[in-house]
Design a protein around this nucleic acid. Structure first.
Lengths: 152, 152
DNA sequence: GATAAAGTCTACCGAATATATAGAGTTAAG
DNA sequence: CTTAACTCTATATATTCGGTAGACTTTATC
């Protein structure tokens, strides 16, 4: 399960992309039903990672710093929730050996989760905020992969 | 990230499958470096779900109740860690609406995570304990499904 | 330059979850 | 009837999650 925080982050970014312009934090919070002070922390972190830009003072607000089709789900999730990999020894951003694992080559379960990680990245690193922008009613696949949208 | 507990469960099941016979809990714990009392709880839960069988008393021990190629990774992970789905509204075993989501049809992020869930299940529900049994050196695909192994 | 309204930063907090430990109880073999 | 296994329930401890609080800084406008 992804965290509530990550959901908030993604929805806020989608909202900023929809608006196309600067939005006040309170306005985003109200529209997406996100606790305002919590959203502050989230956007601040997005700012530190160069995803959004902010302006202070009256007439302040947040806006996207990168074009929506350059912001991937994977990027956002790694910032908020940390590694996508299901095992620390499979993480690209925060590799750690599994404490109780003698050698990775003979780990019985590593190869299985490597495939899970790979397919999760395949989706998350190719899907962008822009892909979530289209009207949900005539929603089509992100970029042509009809197979990917199959049942469930 | 999957939990430590799930890793223990999977490794213990692989060890039981390797042994092919009954094994004492202490023996499994020693071989796989799993805290003994923690493993007790795990195996008890596996027993409640019909995965393993136990015998009490002297000469007691645990053994698999199902053949290793019928025990999937997905099955074990759902018992120990709960839903595989990244969002509660995408879970098959524990569906819950996202509290802050008006309608699922218009949720901006749901469709993306539906694809992640699908591909994770694709791997986890097709891979079994038996697939982790082969010598890691001449490791090949789980069961011939070349598609499942496809690039990335 | 005072005020109001926005973002910034740091700290804290309660509840839940993760990772175990402890110990008394039950069963079965010898 | 003793020993050695599994069984069950409770407890402990640390970390994470989801959120609040409040003081501070910046900027537009009067």
């Amino acid at each position: 399960m992804i965290s509530q925080k990550a959901k908030y982050a993604l929805r806020a970014l989608v909202e900023l992309a929809r608006e196309g312009d600067s939005l006040m934090i309170g306005e985003i919070a109200a529209r997406k039903h996100i606790p305002r002070k919590f959203l502050e922390q989230i956007l601040l972190e997005m700012k530190r990672h160069g995803i959004v830009h902010s302006r202070r003072g009256k007439l302040g607000g947040y806006s996207l710093l990168m074009p929506p089709d350059k912001i991937t789900y994977g990027q956002v999730l790694r910032i908020i929730d940390g590694p996508i990999a299901p095992l620390p020894c499979l993480s690209r951003i925060a590799y750690r050996r599994c404490a109780d694992c003698k050698t990775e080559e003979t780990c019985e379960i590593r190869r299985v989760f490597a495939r899970v990680a790979e397919s999760a990245r395949d989706v998350l690193d190719r899907t962008t905020i822009a892909d979530s922008l289209e009207s949900p009613l005539l929603a089509d696949e992100p970029q042509g992969g009809a197979r990917a949208m199959a049942r469930l």
